[in-house]
Write a protein that binds this DNA or RNA. Structure first.
Length: 296
DNA sequence: GAACGCACCTGTGCGC
DNA sequence: TGCGCACAGGTGCGTT
């Protein structure tokens, strides 16, 4: 479920293995994911040292020592796993069963490193993910990043900013928050969770959180803090699940979270003293989960 | 411009 | 057990 917190967790999980390592070989098992892989992708990465792993929204960025940056998006079903080379054994890796989805291993980074050579394997059954190549200098003009909104963690995101984006917008809050141009990195799950925490209905028009003079109403302040908190909590949860995953099979990308409303249709609302049940509605083709009683 | 619908592709879970 | 169907976390394009 790669939304921003999952991608951040993947980044943290891969960093110790990938940063500083040299890409001995890039193995491409097919010519495309969602889009064709870049021309000469394997040749351009071979022999390069990985300088740093970073993240922008739901994109993983791999900086190389020649100024190039690999952009990786996990789509809906992408994950990475780390396998040790001949010279080493992953913690807990002894006799661990091969992934049953090995046929969906599409891109394999063969690394030279201090541990004797790990493999970092990108697996993606649905192939909604993609990889591209640009340069660090051109990241800001990369099409997917050009119009991206601020990150939901950090100082860029404020109630004032959201008020400026929501003013005059009749679009439902759910759709407005999913728009990556408004906030970068929020997905279906965390939008549902943030709206539940804020007691706001996903169907409410975005403009109703803004005063006639363009100032954020109190509820927008609450929503802003809820967005920050729900993402921060998920990153913290990813950090704890990270340890478990690395100890078991090295797979990064899927974590067991427990959500307050997401995927809880028909269950009782977890807001204290609320007698409502979680409902599921469809907005813009996506499921929204919310409690009609306490979310207005 | 805004708001949908749909396509991309495979796996899973459900009802029958 | 097996089949068919609905649905799934994202993004981007086309249509109205």
């Amino acid at each position: 479920m790669p939304e921003l917190p999952e991608v951040e967790t993947v980044r943290r999980g891969l960093s110790p293995t990938m940063e500083g390592a040299v890409i001995r070989q890039l193995e491409l098992r097919r010519p495309d994911l969602r889009f064709p892989l870049p021309r000469e992708f394997a040749a351009r990465l071979q022999g390069r040292r990985i300088i740093a792993l970073s993240r922008r929204a739901k994109y993983l960025l791999i900086d190389l020592d020649d100024g190039a940056t690999v952009i990786a998006h996990l789509g809906m079903s992408g994950s990475f796993r780390i396998e040790a080379g001949e010279a080493g054994v992953m913690p807990g890796d002894f006799h661990h069963p091969r992934s049953k989805n090995e046929k969906h291993d599409h891109v394999i980074f063969h690394l030279d490193g201090a541990d004797g050579g790990s493999r970092v394997i990108y697996n993606d059954p649905r192939r909604f993910g993609f990889m591209d190549l640009t340069t660090r200098n051109e990241l800001d003009i990369y099409p997917a990043f050009r119009d991206l909104g601020p990150e939901p963690v950090g100082n860029e995101l404020s109630a004032d900013y959201l008020a400026s984006r929501f003013a005059g917008k009749q679009q439902p809050l759910k759709s407005a928050l999913l728009d990556q141009k408004v906030i970068a990195g929020l997905g279906n799950i965390y939008v549902c969770e943030a709206l539940w925490r804020s007691h706001l209905s996903p169907e409410r028009a975005a403009a109703t959180l803004v005063t006639p003079t363009g100032r954020p109403k109190q509820q927008l302040l609450v929503l802003t803090e809820a967005i920050r908190a729900v993402i921060a909590d998920a990153i913290a949860a990813g950090g704890s699940s990270l340890r478990d995953h690395i100890q078991t099979d090295g797979t990064l990308g899927y974590f067991q979270h427990s959500f307050s409303v997401y995927d809880r249709e028909g269950s009782s609302c977890r807001t204290p003293d609320c007698s409502g049940n979680v409902e599921r509605i469809t907005q813009a083709g996506r499921s929204s989960f919310y409690c009609r009683i306490c979310q207005k």
